[in-house]
Design a protein around this nucleic acid. Structure first.
Lengths: 205, 205
DNA sequence: CAGTTTTTATGTAAAAATTCACAAAAAACG
DNA sequence: CGTTTTTTGTGAATTTTTACATAAAAACTG
């Protein structure tokens, strides 16, 4: 595959990976695109074309060697390299994410948190130190982190994001219901739980 | 507009709504699709076509009356009707969502939680009662809820989801990193924070 | 009030994403 | 060892999504 993967395909790769990892490897030494597609409710050609962006190679009449396919996906998603991320905003969501163990499945480690609240600074949450938002630059450097999960109130989000850009952040996953402006060398994506639920609500009936 | 809105457009409506709500209404009695597009980093025709799915009507040379556009979006997204939702799984994320105030912006109220842990059942979290997962049917009926946010461990997600279908749930927002199987009259959408971060990580550099 | 400007609304074109169709590969079978 | 079956990989077609282009509307200008 010569072309770069479109983000819509990239977003499906973790879904495949997750499905494959939960598979009984004894019973499923090989797995076909058709079986994956059936299990995940999608088209089998789509699955094959998505997988083709990785180094995975399937065998006609057999499918993909499950372990090999997992390895290909892990390699593509850099699951075996360690990438450090920080939480910015130690509120309810920030705490929950700090305590969540699922990031290591993708080689991501939550190494520290930042907050502006004096009472929180210096404490630890889920074993991770809470640093001051005045020390983004040194904190990111010290902990070798280049990604941030932004869980501050919407009213503060843009200002905090600006400081993160300044400190050299490379990517932000933003939970604040605000469309951040950002320099083009930074990658920003949003998760708005309330909005997602509103969409669901609208789809009902 | 005769056609039904595609989900990809529907998902953008809360983004517009949010942007408009945060606008200074004194200074922005009218707003053009071009201004919205510029602020949100998208194409202006796309904005107009999305807005055309609502009842919003713009005036040439002027744009949309901001208040009217907000009302059109709110109406389309049913923000002024109340829809009740429940949390299933009172762990870190469940707690955080129970305490989050942003749902009311979309007419959604978190009315109760469910958990299987005896120690949690009977308590309240953020003022919301925690019920037993053995009483989905009565609980959903009592609280008049037809949506659930599923924040149980991945290993339990499918079994709990099955019970929710049984109890008549209409929509599920699933945080467990598992592809749920579901009957076609139920709407299921997923949020996988770790996967989203993995995608971000892959996009870096 | 005719001319100019700006913006909406929308038909058409382009681009992107998905599905269809099928040749080729390789395993299984007889 | 040839035939059948199943699945991959991929070009072509289709569908979906986005962008372009322009007519019409309406406000402003002089």
């Amino acid at each position: 595959m010569i072309n770069e993967i479109p983000e819509i395909s990239l977003k499906r790769l973790p879904v495949y990976l997750n499905y494959l990892r939960n598979l009984d490897k004894e019973k499923n030494k090989y797995i076909s695109s058709g079986a994956i597609a059936l299990a995940l409710g999608m088209g089998e050609v789509l699955v094959r074309k998505d997988l083709a962006y990785t180094e995975a190679v399937g065998r006609p009449k057999i499918g993909y060697l499950t372990e090999e396919l997992i390895t290909a996906l892990e390699s593509f998603l850099h699951c075996n390299e360690v990438r450090n991320a920080v939480i910015v905003g130690v509120g309810g969501i920030g705490r929950a994410i700090l305590g969540y163990g699922g990031f290591k499945n993708y080689g991501i480690e939550m190494v520290a948190a930042f907050d502006s609240d004096e009472k929180k600074i210096g404490t630890t949450v889920a074993g991770k130190p809470v640093l001051s938002t005045t020390e983004f630059k040194s904190g990111l450097k010290q902990y070798n982190a280049d990604m941030a999960v932004l869980t501050v109130p919407a009213s503060a989000a843009q200002a905090v994001a600006n400081e993160l850009y300044e400190a050299g952040i490379k990517a932000i996953l933003n939970f604040a219901p605000v469309q951040l402006t950002y320099p083009k060398h930074v990658i920003v994506r949003n998760i708005d739980v309330a909005a997602r639920l509103a969409v669901l609500s609208t789809l009902i009936k």
